[in-house]
């Protein structure tokens, strides 16, 4: 079942990410099975599913942290091939936030934020620092600029990681379980930043199990299982009318106690 996602208010927006018949194997293991997906500019997509379902692998294909074997993948009008120039061009436009933050521990918060703009975009240092401070204000931790990542809490580190991606002024943001490694009391501060980003119209693909977040901001939710997209629907129908047994089972498991 090809999942063509184009919620009413976004129809007609240019396509940001398009996957056609995408397949990937790890040796014998078929991680991604015939993935078809269209994400338009400004669209917010939440991807959920049991662990090992291929959701992280799928979004990691978008900036080539993982390589797909068959099918086509277009990002911002550029096709991802083995051409290094294309990969570099796409990575400049696609930001990513990781489960484990992956901040650079030997650099201060400010240096973490200015590194890529200075070295990749060739922005003058002073300008890069001004932009970095602007984004630190937006994630509400400008006072931590001179500290090292190790001195911050998990929630603060993840907000720095989001700011670090935003400093490259990406057109698309990928979130790979951004709150899964956080203590419960820090999840909200990170989600708040993400909600704000969504409100400003950022194109977002989020792998997350935060269903409250999905309900609030997602244009569509995708359910993946065993390497395939099983269902995709706007939040209202996704939760109210799951069509497949697999999604019903999954929802009963993750929504228990909510």
């Amino acid at each position: 079942m090809p999942a063509s996602l184009a919620p009413a208010h976004n129809t007609g927006n240019p396509i940001a990410v398009e996957m056609r018949g995408l397949n990937k194997w790890y040796g014998e293991f078929h991680v991604l099975r015939d993935i078809n997906l269209t994400v338009r500019k400004g669209e917010r997509l939440v991807i959920c599913g049991p662990s090992g379902s291929g959701k992280s692998t799928m979004i990691r294909c978008i900036n080539r942290l993982e390589e797909h074997q068959t099918g086509t993948l277009m990002v911002d009008g550029i096709e991802l091939t083995n051409d290094v120039r294309n990969i570099d061009a796409i990575r400049r436009e696609v930001g990513m936030v990781f489960q484990q933050f992956n901040l650079f521990p030997h650099l201060t918060v400010l240096e973490n934020l200015t590194l890529a703009p200075i070295w990749v975009r060739k922005v003058p240092k002073k300008e890069a620092e001004e932009a970095a401070m602007y984004y630190l204000e937006r994630v509400k931790i400008p006072e931590q600029a001179a500290k090292y990542p190790g001195q911050l809490s998990g929630g603060q580190q993840q907000r720095v990681a989001i700011a670090r991606s935003l400093c490259m002024k990406p057109k698309i943001m990928l979130f790979d379980e951004p709150t899964s490694a956080l203590d419960p009391e820090m999840i909200k501060e990170v989600l708040d930043v993400m909600v704000e980003l969504a409100r400003e119209g950022m194109t977002m693909l989020c792998v997350t199990h935060e269903m409250g977040f999905a309900r609030e901001v997602a244009d569509a939710i995708i359910f993946m299982d065993r390497g395939e997209i099983v269902e995709s629907a706007p939040p209202s129908t996704f939760f109210a009318n799951p069509r497949t047994d697999r999604l019903k089972l999954f929802l009963s498991q993750i929504l228990r106690g909510h």
């Binding site: 942290l65 990575r91 400049r92 992956n102 901040l103 650079f104 890529a116 070295w119």
Partner: peptide, 27 residues
């Protein structure tokens, strides 16, 4: 130096050589 470091650097658009010089070697 963990793989997460090189992945983060790659996702920001740093080349392999820049990643080695600016991220991996200093650590």
């Amino acid at each position: 130096v963990g793989q997460g470091q090189t992945e983060a650097a790659a996702s920001l658009g740093l080349s392999r050589w820049q990643t080695m010089r600016l991220i991996v070697l200093p650590q």
